[in-house]
Measured scan of single mutants.
Amino acid sequence: MDVFMKGLSKAKEGVVAAAEKTKQGVAEAAGKTKEGVLYVGSKTKEGVVHGVATVAEKTKEQVTNVGGAVVTGVTAVAQKTVEGAGSIAAATGFVKKDQLGKNEEGAPQEGILEDMPVDPDNEAYEMPSEEGYQDYEPEA
């Protein structure tokens, strides 16, 4: 019985440690998101679009440190934060509304985080759909 109880105690310690790591990862992701939003706020009209992409990228980098179902929630929060940063930029006159959601080359930025393969159960990952990809044929 002692062996059984000791095993359960060790398992509990492992769960607590994993929860603490997840909590730490979420806190880091939130900190990076805040950094990115402050970065966007300090940019001029020309830099705002690039700044919004930076927020998304920093958040995406930190999301990889967070495991399990938390990833889905962090990704949703990050996307809403990026959308909010863009709205703030438009409201303050840093950028025109028609410039939001495009990178410096004018290509749409939507789907940055949505296409990231995420499995809350950590069982399997699927690649994003290939609808947006084109076949590449090298020139002879």
Rank of each mutant, 00 (worst) to 15 (best):
V3Y: 06
V3Q: 05
F4K: 00
M5S: 04
L8I: 00
S9K: 15
S9D: 08
S9C: 04
K10S: 03
K10N: 06
K10V: 11
A11P: 00
A19V: 08
E20L: 01
K21N: 02
K23Q: 02
V26W: 08
A27L: 09
E28A: 10
E28G: 09
A29Q: 03
A29S: 04
G31T: 09
K32Q: 07
T33I: 06
K34N: 03
E35R: 09
V37D: 00
V37F: 07
V37P: 00
L38R: 08
L38S: 01
V40F: 13
G41N: 00
G41L: 07
S42V: 06
K43H: 04
K43C: 14
T44N: 01
T44H: 03
V48K: 01
V48I: 14
V49W: 09
V49S: 06
V49Q: 14
H50E: 04
V55N: 01
A56K: 10
A56S: 08
Q62M: 13
T64D: 04
N65C: 10
V66N: 02
G67I: 11
V70Y: 06
V70N: 02
V71G: 02
V71H: 04
V71W: 11
T72N: 09
G73D: 05
G73N: 10
V74M: 11
V74Q: 02
A76C: 15
A76E: 10
V77K: 04
K80G: 05
T81C: 15
T81I: 12
T81D: 03
V82A: 03
E83D: 09
E83K: 14
A85S: 06
A85I: 15
G86L: 11
S87L: 15
S87W: 02
S87I: 04
I88D: 04
A89S: 08
A90V: 15
A90L: 12
A91T: 01
A91I: 14
T92R: 01
G93I: 11
K96N: 10
K96Y: 12
K96S: 10
K96D: 07
D98T: 06
G101T: 08
N103W: 12
N103K: 01
E105C: 13
G106M: 13
G106D: 02
A107T: 11
A107C: 09
Q109S: 05
D115A: 09
V118H: 11
V118R: 03
V118F: 05
D119S: 03
D119R: 13
D119Q: 14
P120T: 03
P120W: 12
P120E: 08
D121Y: 15
N122T: 02
N122R: 14
N122G: 10
E123M: 07
E123I: 12
Y125Q: 07
E126D: 13
E126P: 10
M127K: 12
M127I: 12
P128A: 10
S129C: 05
E131P: 12
E131R: 03
Y133I: 11
Y133F: 13
Y133H: 02
Q134F: 03
D135R: 05
D135I: 14
E137G: 10
P138I: 02
E139F: 10
A140K: 15
